[in-house]
Amino acid sequence: MSAMKDLLVEIAKALVDHPDEVQVTEVEGEQTTVLELRVRSDDLGKVIGRQGRTARAIRTLLAAAGMKVHKRFVLEILE
């Protein structure tokens, strides 16, 4: 497991009501890695937030942490 995936798992688990159902799949590309986040459907709002603010904050943090490993990370939230 990569550090970025672990980072996303920790953040998502802390935000939701059902941490056991948090799943992150890493799809590695050449320049960008897609992190697919799955949570229980009634937890979707918790990781997206009002006007998408929570999702945007997570993306901002992933981008900052990604600079350390010189990679771009894209967050996809899946139902």
């Binding site: 953040i11 802390a14 935000l15 939701v16 009501d17 918790k46 937030g49 603010r53 929570t54 945007r56 904050a57 997570i58 901002t60 943090l61 981008a63 900052a64 942490a65 600079m67 350390k68």
Partner: peptide, 26 residues
């Protein structure tokens, strides 16, 4: 790694603070 948070005008620091507040809300 603190400079990762203060880069881009401190947006990552603001994002972390926002998430910290949402985690405590929950």
């Amino acid at each position: 790694d603190a400079r990762l948070l203060t880069g881009s005008g401190g947006k990552p620091l603001d994002a972390l603070q926002y998430l910290a507040n949402r985690v405590l809300d929950n």
